[in-house]
């Protein structure tokens, strides 16, 4: 069943088109930086971008930071929102369930397929970022500079980059959980995607509002950018662990709700 879902997703041209579009923005930014040689000053613009002109090895992180606030969540919400509602809209859901695929098994397979998409997407963005960084900028793979100003060995930089990729993937899993839950509520994939994006927009908006500060620690997007903390010296774990715990709670609750809804629902599509 899981193999079936993976095959369905990665044989779909749309999946690869989404990933390609997602990579277009960091590549465009890199080209502009090289051509103009105008990096944002430290502390402005997306994290790491100010440093890439001097060290291209940081470009994978800069690429992730560029797509993280908007493009990556949109892509994840589209794929996860489509997972159940898309089958319902196409009418294939009834044939899968009458086959019988099993409702719980189908939901788990969908979740794993979305998870695979998140991982593949994040890895491709990081990979393309690496290639771009290595070809367009002066890469200094031997040493890196931490955000705190100390230098990191290439090995440290590699490990921390992998940790950061993992953290971003977990953050996106939260988005996927919202979209998957909405996807079991409606027969319209667009509705499910929009629902998840509405949650994220609301969360980002409240985060900037002082009056919302009491609930700020519980907003799903609150700790997204904490992956930068992997590159402080020493690693600043406080926000990272909070972010992981928060996403864990959201994912757990939403998946439980999705399961409860999907296994007891009348499939009339």
């Amino acid at each position: 069943m899981i193999a079936v879902e993976l095959r369905k997703m990665f044989r779909r041209p749309r999946t690869w088109a989404t990933i390609a579009v997602l990579n277009a923005l960091p590549v465009l930014v890199a080209v502009l930086l090289v051509v103009t040689d105008l990096a944002p000053r430290p502390g402005e613009g997306p994290p790491f971008l100010s440093a890439v002109l001097s060290n291209g090895a940081l470009y994978p992180l800069a690429a992730l930071a560029i797509v993280l606030p908007l493009f990556l969540p949109i892509a994840v919400a589209v794929i996860a929102g489509d997972s159940v509602a898309g089958e319902a809209q196409a009418g294939t859901l009834r044939y899968l369930l009458a086959r019988p695929a099993g409702r719980t098994r189908l939901l788990v397979a969908k979740l794993i397929a979305v998870l695979a998409f998140v991982l593949v997407t994040v890895l491709v963005v990081a990979g393309v970022g690496y290639v771009v960084g290595a070809t367009l900028f002066e890469a200094q793979p031997a040493v890196g500079t931490s955000v705190s100003g100390t230098s990191l060995t290439a090995q440290e930089l590699g490990v921390r980059t992998l940790l950061a990729i993992g953290y971003v993937a977990v953050s996106m899993l939260g988005v996927a959980a919202f979209a998957l839950f909405f996807s079991t509520l409606t027969d319209s994939p667009l509705g499910a995607t929009m629902g998840a994006l509405a949650v994220l927009v609301t969360s980002s908006l409240l985060f900037t509002l002082d009056a919302a500060s009491p609930i700020a620690p519980y907003l799903p997007t609150r700790y997204w950018l904490a992956f930068v903390d992997f590159f402080r010296d020493p690693i600043l774990w406080r926000d990272i662990t909070r972010g992981l715990a928060l996403q864990g709670v959201y994912v757990g609750v939403l998946l439980a709700a999705a399961w409860a809804n999907f296994t007891t629902k009348d499939v009339t599509s």
Partner: peptide, 10 residues
Amino acid sequence: IEGPAHYGHL
């Protein structure tokens, strides 16, 4: 059930 349904791109 109520007409066929398939994945159109396959």
